[in-house]
Write a protein that binds this DNA or RNA. Structure first.
Length: 564
RNA sequence: GCGCCAGUAGCUCAGUAGGAUAGAGCAACUGCCUUCUAAGCAGUAGGUCAGGGGUUCGAAUCCCUUCUGGCGUGCCA
């Protein structure tokens, strides 16, 4: 549960404050408050491992030039026994701290002691969080957009779990509404075409043209033949919808499992209708006076809550709109199920809705004042093949499915590739994806892991053992060794930031950098032929690296092979 | 029109709760395997951080503005 970066930062701050008080006592500074500065990790370690800007921040209150303040503070510092071995003054007045072997040793001890839990922190304080993601329409197979939303939501949930939140993953199944009716009519048309011939039956306008619809119709026809012909269309569609939704939902579960996503709950929209919860929620809004009737429909006066337009809750025909259902659904998440925070992972094509919807959720009648609703809006995936842009649409059935994609590039590459920063437009080149082999960074990372596993196995078979601790960390003195250890130490902090920013792609970059540092270490430091004490220390360093790569890959759902 | 997101090396992208000389991978070029996995390492070359203003000790990062691209602005979800 240790955040080693945070500990080092706090250590710098504490050392400086102590030096500051000492300087005042010695009459070097006029009495003043300790200037609040920032402790950063410089890009170039020539500027130290940690850099403090307190001297610049305190220039005004102390009425002294920053460099002078820095020099005085540095002179008063007591580094004996601390995480640091020396400081330097540089640039406009930075105080640069250089880590000591005490700290490097502590990092390896911590990783060893925490094992699979290394990276975990109590940052989230057990706050109950729901991440709702994918939630693909059950009217067809999942697409490449769901591939992105899937890893994003899943990895976000993992990162938040590790950061100490109590996280639940949910898939919302839209098994009601217009789209579902259209789905039924599409299957019906394909079924009738099977019986009466393709040209004898008209396909509904805006229907779902995908092959999966034909397959559903064929499955019905294979099983029950012409049995549904004589039936009333409404009744027939009801049966077809039931059949199609059940089958599609089952398929989505299978494919998501293959994609290594396991939802805690599958929540069905129909349940909100059947239990009267939608009606109850709308009534609540109606009673609070923030609705009005116009053109026979019931409207929510959303402009009262800061939105740019009002919304229809109930149509003239008495049916509730998706908007009303969404409000009910989110009220259910917070009120009935008690989540403190809900994060919805939505595509950018819903961002307008997200803004207006967030406004609606502040309606006092809903009683969600202390609750937090956040949206993780991910930009669209642009599908291209070389220079050609491929237009995808579930309706026209031209989409590349998630399952096809997993067949082509594998689950690991797929998860790694789609775990990109949410707010960048992702260009997915099919040509590139298909020949994505050793060019893919996922292999670079997996190779590092496999390399370490093999290395350790060889040493163990030579009679060496991974030490449980107690190594001489002073021996790990090369630049490559120290850079590697610093990266190991950063994992917990990286997880914290990924959770804070809702950006799990940070873990990708982290683990690529960690692997790079390992490869550099490996190329410059031999282990097998090192002196016993050094061999032991390096062996532990390798083992810790293996551990952290595995932990990081686990967070983003990518496998860590022992052999490649 | 208004709103959201983006624009960084030839390509794909890091870096954005202000920090020091803007980084990596791919592609190009040069080295390194009879010794722990060469799916690797070391090096060369590549930049008006879209343009312009501002804020300050300091701006790719914050503010304003222009341009370009994607998306939204449904009684679809």
């Amino acid at each position: 549960m240790a955040n080693l970066i945070e500990e080092a930062r706090q250590a710098v701050d504490a050392l400086l404050e102590k030096a500051f008080q000492k300087a005042i006592a010695a009459g070097e500074f006029e009495p003043a408050d300790f200037p609040s500065g920032k402790v950063d990790i410089p890009k170039d370690s020539i500027n130290g491992d940690y850099a403090a800007n307190h001297a610049m921040a305190g220039a005004k209150s102390l009425k002294l030039p920053p460099r002078k303040i820095a020099e005085t503070l540095a002179a008063c510092l007591e580094l004996e026994g601390s995480f640091f071995q020396k400081v330097e003054i540089a640039g406009p007045g930075f105080i640069n701290f250089f880590l000591s072997s005490t700290w490097y040793g502590k990092v390896l001890e911590t990783v060893t002691a925490e094992g699979v839990d290394y990276g975990r922190s109590g940052e989230g304080k057990g706050e109950r969080v729901m991440v709702e993601f994918v939630s693909a329409n059950p009217t067809g197979p999942m697409t490449i957009g769901n591939a992105r939303g899937g890893v994003l939501g899943d990895a976000l949930a993992s990162v938040m779990d590790l950061a100490g939140y109590n996280v639940s993953r949910e898939f919302y199944v839209n098994d009601a509404g217009n789209q579902v009716d259209l789905f039924g009519k599409s299957i019906e048309a394909r079924y009738l075409q099977l019986v009466r011939g393709e040209d004898a039956v008209e396909f509904p306008e805006n229907g779902y043209h995908g092959n999966d619809i034909r397959e559903l119709a064929a499955a019905l026809h294979d099983a029950d033949g012409d049995k549904y012909i004589s039936m009333d269309s409404d009744e027939r569609c009801k049966i077809f919808i039931q059949f199609g939704l059940t089958r599609n939902t089952e398929l989505m579960k299978q494919h998501l499992e293959r994609y290594r996503i396991n939802f805690d709950t599958w929540f069905f929209e129909s349940a909100l209708h059947d239990s009267g919860y939608v009606a109850e929620t709308v009534k609540l809004l109606e009673n609070s006076g923030c609705t009005y009737e116009q053109d026979g429909a019931l409207w929510l006066r959303n402009t009262d809550f800061g939105a740019d337009k009002d919304e229809v809750l109930r149509r003239e025909n008495g049916f509730y709109t998706y908007y009303a259902v969404d409000i009910a659904y989110h009220r259910n998440k917070f009120i009935e199920r008690g989540f403190d925070r809900v994060i919805d992972v939505w595509g950018a094509d819903h961002h307008g809705h997200a803004i207006r919807f967030a406004a609606s959720m502040t309606a006092p009648a809903l009683g969600l004042k202390d609750k937090k609703l956040d949206f993780l809006i991910m930009q669209m995936v642009r599908l291209v093949r070389g220079d050609e842009v491929i237009k995808v649409s579930k309706r026209t059935g031209k989409a590349l499915t998630l399952n096809d994609l997993m067949d082509e590039i594998g689950v690991d590459a797929c998860r790694f590739f789609f775990n990109a920063k949410p707010d960048t437009h992702l260009v997915f080149d099919l040509d590139l994806a298909i020949r994505q082999d050793s060019e893919n960074p996922v292999y670079y990372v997996q190779y590092a892991h496999a390399r370490i596993c093999s290395l350790i196995a060889n040493l163990v078979s030579d009679g060496h053992a991974v030490p449980a601790g107690g190594i001489n960390s002073q021996l790990l003195s090369s630049k490559q060794e120290q850079e590697l250890i610093k990266q190991l130490a950063a994992f917990t902090e990286e997880v914290r930031l990924a959770a804070r920013d809702y950006d799990p792609s940070r873990i990708n970059h982290y683990v690529v950098e960690l692997s790079a540092r390992f490869h550099r270490f490996y190329a410059s430091c031999h282990i097998k032929d090192a002196e016993p004490e050094l061999l032991s220390a390096r062996l532990l360093l390798c083992d810790c690296t293996r551990r952290v790569i595995a932990n990081a890959l686990a967070v983003i759902g990518v496998s860590a092979p022992e052999k490649m």
